[in-house]
Design a protein around this nucleic acid. Structure first.
Lengths: 190, 190
DNA sequence: GTCTATACAAAGATAGAC
DNA sequence: GTCTATCTTTGTATAGAC
């Protein structure tokens, strides 16, 4: 992706994490980047095109990158901690997970974006599920219920806590993270 | 609250749960209810007024009502199950918790609404926290970590799962609910 | 690839009649 | 309390020059 194009996508991603897809405009982008609206329309004729590219970039830059990195790590514990921390490094203060943001607005998204969001949601669950299964198999994790239901719960709790961190001054995200570790890692201590 | 006024507030609440605060318009409301935009402006001059009334109605109709009902129940287990189920009865298919929806859009809300949303977020956590403490005290619940962190995790997981249910055809919410019960209720069986 | 100018529709809001 | 009419601003999008 060319520089300018990538710059627009990155700014749009930040706006989605901060304000949501429906709540940012090409004017917001143009002022933040320092170009005109028309220029952005040149690169992404419709907002839907831009939204789709944001989704595609999440898939490639976050998911594929994480997948590769995870395969190089040795223990399930390392993998879990990598995934959880990696996730947080992508989110600044006042932002939430872009996938959560798009899920919250799901009903107003164009169909093409709905499809991408559903796909990303399923993928992140699958990845975590694999790690949990590995941990159960080698005895480093311990929990009741299926890996799939546990994976959903962990992801939902983690991202939900991010949303709560907007209104509660506490360090809620880390509190929840600790709580998660306590519940599934056998020898975990805070 | 008068009939028409309440009808407007109820419709607005549904729209927030479905589409989000920023994504519904007075036009949407007017068409859904069958009155003109001007009439809605008569009852709620600014959208902010309507948004605030929606928040206030959640506080009174959901929170105060739940508080009263909970005080009449006997065991922590009953109270927990009541709260969790009560919550779900308020949410139709394709909707999410209105507080979650407002949290997701937090950065674009007027200050008055930010305050209300922060208040509601704190309140729901406090209520659940009290129930968890009771359950720990009488031995019916069992978990590691503080009641406060557990309460945050449960709420975050529960509401997060609602967002996921938009994109995953599974009965995710019930799966997560079961997972929660398994982890804190001593003698729980699916 | 970027700009100015412009079109068009939608959103929030108000004035004034009934 | 509800309507018609109108205003203003914003959002999305296009045309055409440089």
């Amino acid at each position: 992706m060319k520089n300018r194009k990538e710059q627009i996508v990155n700014t749009a991603t930040t706006f989605i994490k901060k304000y949501g897809y429906d709540s940012f405009s090409y004017k917001d982008l143009s002022e933040s980047i320092g170009i005109t609206k028309a220029t952005i329309h040149h690169h992404f004729p419709k907002k839907e095109d831009l939204g789709l590219t944001v989704c595609e970039q999440i898939r490639v830059k976050i998911f594929l990158a994480a997948e590769k990195k995870i395969s190089q790590l040795n223990t399930p514990k390392e993998k879990l901690e990598y995934v959880m921390n990696k996730f947080l490094t992508e989110i600044e203060k006042g932002e939430i997970c872009p996938i959560s943001s798009l899920q919250a607005e799901y009903n107003i998204l164009p169909n093409s974006m709905k499809e991408m969001v559903a796909n990303l949601s399923e993928k992140e669950n699958t990845y975590l599920c694999e790690i949990l299964k590995e941990g159960l198999a080698d005895g480093s994790f311990q929990f009741s219920g299926s890996p799939r239901s546990m994976a959903i719960m962990i992801i939902a709790a983690y991202k939900g806590s991010l949303q709560y961190s907007r209104t509660m001054d506490d360090n809620i995200v880390n509190i929840v993270l600790e709580q998660i570790y306590k519940q599934i890692i056998k020898d975990h201590k805070a």
